[in-house]
Design a protein around this nucleic acid. Structure first.
Length: 974
DNA sequence: AGGTTGACATA
DNA sequence: GTATGTCAACCTT
């Protein structure tokens, strides 16, 4: 290099992030590979090279290099272990682009420079020094303030995105100091992004003013006593060491042992075909065309290059250091070292490794006690773009809970707790007392709300429905969000639990603090507001930290497994829908339940006496053990069977059979059991759940508790409200609409058999459903040759049992049990059924085979249900897994269908200006509360959404049918 | 006090 | 034969 030569130094790593964030997401059409940063990079480099040939611009590079960070670990970590420690991992869809951009650089025929142990900035500093010594000029293509210390008369910076030169005057204008004082300035200011400590309380303005006054940092520290402001003087003296460490962190090294000298950076002409090959492979059509024109290349003559990114080349800023995983993933799926770096699978592997390796240090968690501190965390979270969030409350039931605190996490070890509602038990006795050192709930919300509703910040949580509902009750609609519980559920339904502790153990090898250890148990149980703040901080911040780590591990696996759309379309959108349903609750008639309770109690008491009389002694009727001993032991009734634990079985079915033979006692027992069950589980228990504020019943829905995709309901369970018996139905009549409203019940007719007809593609079934005929009668007719007209009820009943049996993964044993027939007879039925419907047998075999081959079966929408024990050597375990794998696609597809309807329902109603509110879901039924005068307009909307909910994802071969009705109570509506 | 079992409510 | 949740009794700690 000689005088007059000009070196361009592109800060490749810096540019990657800027391009990524500045450009909208872009994916390669053929396979979805994310490429927005690659395109931004290519456009920028191409423009620079074109400008270089356009002498009008005045700057003509003769030398050119693109410089990258090798990894996030550099010599600075030895100076200061926490350097860049709070950097969050790059976004999922950016990571594969690191390797691609290096590849792009080579395609441009440009030197691609990186050096282990040094940052790109150090390499740039070294080249800048070399250029200066050779009396040449240098332009640094970057706008990073960390590089501004390098600006000299012959070294300028250029921001390609803003098309702006940064020379000495620009640095002074922006920072108030000349470039050579930037190091001292940054040493004092610190840098929250890189975790450079600086001097607390000294910002840019103060730092610049002090440098103006004292000249440089060493002089300032030596003469700090002269500073007039007392507080400032003190902090600077106290933090002199921090300032000195910070200076070493921000000072760029200009002595990097470079492999390539300046002469190896001479800019050559672009290799048209090579570059076009790359651009074609990336599917950048516009840029391909432009490059082709400029280089005189015939696009058609160039084949897309195969992008061969070094498969082990996963290094890059913050991706994590290379090396074998400290702990192999338990399921082996992420332990695929040969996976290409630019695939989601590789990303998942890298993430799993990094998350498991990052130490979990409870002492580093922060407790936020001042509004300003919280604001700083919020600002950092908004910068980071991803934050995990959780609420701590007084109750596991979100509708009874009061907020006690909030926890945030920005990255491993970077987690903070904001106590707002901690009380002291002692003070409570004296009239209740807030613990000192907390900001108010209102203050916390004022600071947090902008973050929680910020569309550009992803909120991560575990079982976020709970936190979403808490926030909603406080007037905050959290969005956008990810839920690690649901991600895990989509990835591994059927492979164990998805609670945060199980996942932390499984993916991070970390045993979490049990909630019980924090709040105690039994008589020592306290609500979270009475937990001391220290302990609460440790617990809550750990939860937030773990959730974010799990997110970084699990989220990329969705893409790797092709399950992103299942998560995004069937799972995540249901969170606010269910939260609102829980929040609305349902109205029940407390008096009616109370009257029923009294009535059941009287009748049960009367039966009790009759039982004692018949038995000849008093005993605990509710004890199956005592009852069995009396019935089959002392009284010697026939037909007794034993349960697996060796006790007499006293099931209702068995007692019914005895009753049919004329025995009095069993009949009374059955009746007594029914009445006491209804009383204890429903008429007594339900009123206890009525919320004193809303006067309504608020259930909790679990989204990840069934392997098939069904949701479950608990506390109270509103999915098992009685319907079969007349007595039971009286409980249903207590579920009522608010004044002026009706309850609407809309249920899918025979949805599982319809799904079966579709999946197994059974002509008779699809035709029957298309024709709207009685499906059980049709089955009976096919099997037993009996005409549908005038069919005996019992024949139809048997066919119905068989149809259900099929859905449950039929066995001769089970069918025989159900129909109280011999197992051989049941076996004959099944044989006959398969002769008539051979497609069903094929369906069953194919599901079992798929479960064996892949370990899972799937619904028509692609939800997977895993059966890891399908190959068990235990025949009954194996058979159970086989039946379940037959049932799961049917039950699961039906569950997906109603999920889709629920997700669409609220918008559909709103767009028709209807005020109907969805309250409950019972697997194939939705219950709404509808203003009486809107019922007529609402019914067809509900019906249309439900009947059309498989579309457009799946065109079913059978129609879906929905019966919808309105009434004053649930019994009449159903 | 906490866990297990048998029974039974639902789809 | 599938999928749940809750209760009372009973056993273990």
């Amino acid at each position: 290099m000689k005088k007059g030569d000009h070196l361009f130094l592109v800060d490749g790593s810096g540019y990657i992030f800027r391009a990524y964030h500045a450009l909208p997401p872009l994916n390669r059409k053929s396979d979805g590979l994310p490429t927005n940063a690659v395109l931004g990079f290519c456009n920028m480099v191409w423009k620079l090279m074109q400008d270089a040939r356009n002498t009008d611009v005045g700057i003509v590079p003769t030398h050119f290099a693109v410089v990258f960070d090798y990894s996030s670990k550099t010599f600075r970590n030895e100076l200061y272990a926490d350097y860049k420690a709070n950097r969050s991992a790059p976004p999922d869809d950016l990571i594969p682009q690191f390797g691609l951009i290096r590849e792009a650089t080579r395609a441009f025929n440009l030197p691609c420079i990186e050096m282990e142990g040094f940052e790109a900035d150090d390499i740039i500093a070294t080249y800048a020094r070399l250029a200066t010594e050779a009396e040449g000029d240098a332009t640094i293509i970057s706008s990073d303030k960390d590089l501004m210390q390098l600006v000299r008369p012959n070294v300028t910076m250029y921001d390609p995105m803003k098309d702006r030169q940064i020379g000495i005057p620009e640095v002074i204008e922006k920072w108030g100091v000349p470039p050579e004082k930037m190091i001292d300035l940054q040493a004092m200011m610190g840098d929250s992004v890189d975790n450079v400590p600086g001097v607390p309380g000294i910002g840019q303005k103060t730092a610049a003013q002090l440098l103006e006054q004292f000249g440089d940092l060493d002089t300032l520290l030596a003469r700090a006593g002269e500073i007039k402001q007392e507080k400032r003087r003190q902090t600077i003296i106290e933090n002199a060491d921090k300032a000195r460490v910070s200076r070493e962190l921000v000072r760029l090294r200009d002595d990097v042992p470079l492999a390539e000298g300046l002469d190896e950076l001479v800019l050559g002409n672009p290799d048209g075909p090579k570059l076009i090959g790359f651009l074609k492979a990336m599917e950048f059509s516009t840029l391909t065309r432009r490059v082709a024109e400029a280089t005189g290349t015939d696009v058609a003559q160039v084949a897309p290059s195969s992008i061969a990114v070094d498969t082990t080349d996963v290094h890059g800023p913050d991706v994590g250091a290379d090396g074998p995983p400290r702990r192999p993933a338990t399921d082996g799926a992420s332990a695929t070292p040969a996976a290409a770096a630019n695939t989601p699978a590789a990303l998942a592997a890298v993430r799993a490794r990094a998350a498991a390796d990052a130490a979990l240090d409870h002492s580093r968690y922060a407790c936020i006690r001042h509004r300003a501190e919280l604001e700083a965390w919020v600002a950092e979270a908004r910068e980071a773009g991803v934050v995990s969030f959780r609420t701590e409350t007084t109750s596991l039931e979100p509708m009874r809970a009061e907020p006690v605190g909030f926890a945030l996490s920005l990255g491993p070890g970077r987690s903070a707790y904001v106590p707002v509602g901690h009380r002291s038990a002692a003070a409570d006795l004296l009239g209740g007392g807030q613990v000192e050192g907390q900001i108010t709930l209102d203050e916390a919300l004022a600071a947090l709300k902008p973050l929680l509703v910020d569309r550009s910040v992803l909120k991560v949580g575990h079982n976020l429905k709970y936190d979403w509902l808490m926030a909603h009750r406080l007037g905050v609609d959290v969005a956008p969000f990810d839920d690690t519980m649901l991600i895990s559920y989509v990835l591994g339904a059927g492979t164990g639990r998805h609670d945060i502790a199980a996942l932390a153990e499984r993916w991070l090898g970390h045993p979490m603090i049990p909630f019980k250890d924090v709040v105690g148990s039994g008589r020592n149980l306290v609500t979270f507001d009475l937990v001391d703040i220290e302990r609460a901080t440790t617990y809550a911040t750990e939860g937030a930290d773990i959730a974010l780590r799990l997110w970084s591990v699990l989220k990329p696996r969705l893409a790797a497994e092709g399950l992103v759309s299942v998560y995004e379309r069937l799972e995540r959108p249901l969170v606010p829908v269910l939260a609102r349903m829980e929040e609305r609750g349902v109205s029940v008639d407390r008096q009616m339940l109370s009257r029923l309770s009294g009535e059941f109690a009287q009748r049960a008491a009367a039966l009790e006496e009759e039982v004692y009389a018949a038995a000849g002694e008093r005993f605990t009727i509710g004890s199956p053990k005592q009852l069995g001993d009396i019935l089959f032991g002392r009284m010697g009734l026939p037909g007794g069977t034993k349960t697996k634990s060796g006790q007499w079985s006293t099931t209702a079915q068995l007692l019914e059979e005895l009753a049919a033979e004329g025995h009095e006692l069993p009949r009374r027992i059955v009746d007594w059991r029914q009445l006491t069950k209804l009383k204890s589980t429903y008429t007594d228990a339900l009123p206890e759940y009525i919320n004193p504020e809303t006067k309504r019943l608020h259930t909790s829905y679990a989204l990840a508790s069934t392997p098939t995709g069904r949701i479950s309901s608990s506390e109270p369970n509103l999915q098992n409200i009685p319907i079969r018996t007349a007595e039971g139905r009286r409980i249903r009549t207590a579920f009522i609409a608010a004044p002026g409203n009706k309850l609407v019940s809309a249920d899918y007719s025979q949805i599982e058999l319809r799904v079966l007809a579709h999946i197994a593609d059974i002509p008779q079934l699809t035709k029957a459903f298309a024709d709207g005929v009685d499906i059980h009668a049709m089955t009976a007719s096919e099997m037993f040759g009996v005409p549908v007209e005038g069919m005996p009820a019992d024949v139809r009943r048997r066919a119905k049992a068989i149809n259900f049996g099929i859905i449950y993964g039929i066995s001769a044993f089970g069918l025989a049990n159900q129909l109280s027939i011999e197992r051989s007879e049941a076996g004959d039925y099944i044989k006959k059924y398969f002769e008539r419907f051979p497609g069903i047998r094929d369906y069953m075999e194919s599901r079992k085979q798929m479960a064996r081959d892949k370990g899972y079966v799937e619904t028509i929408f692609g939800r997977r249900i895993h059966y890891p024990e399908i190959k068990s050597s235990n025949p009954s375990v194996r058979a159970f897994n086989e039946r379940a794998s037959i049932n799961a696609p049917i039950q699961g597809s039906a569950a997906d269908i109603i999920r889709r309807a629920m997700i669409r329902m609220e918008d559909a109603l709103a767009s028709e200006k209807l005020s109907a509110r969805m309250l409950l879901q019972v697997h194939d039924e939705l219950i709404f509360e509808v203003a009486a005068d809107e019922v007529a307009a609402t019914l067809p909307v509900i019906k249309a959404v439900m009947e059309g909910s498989a579309m457009p994802a799946v065109a079913l071969k059978v129609p879906l049918a929905v019966d919808a009705r309105a009434a004053d109570n649930w019994d009449e509506a159903h």
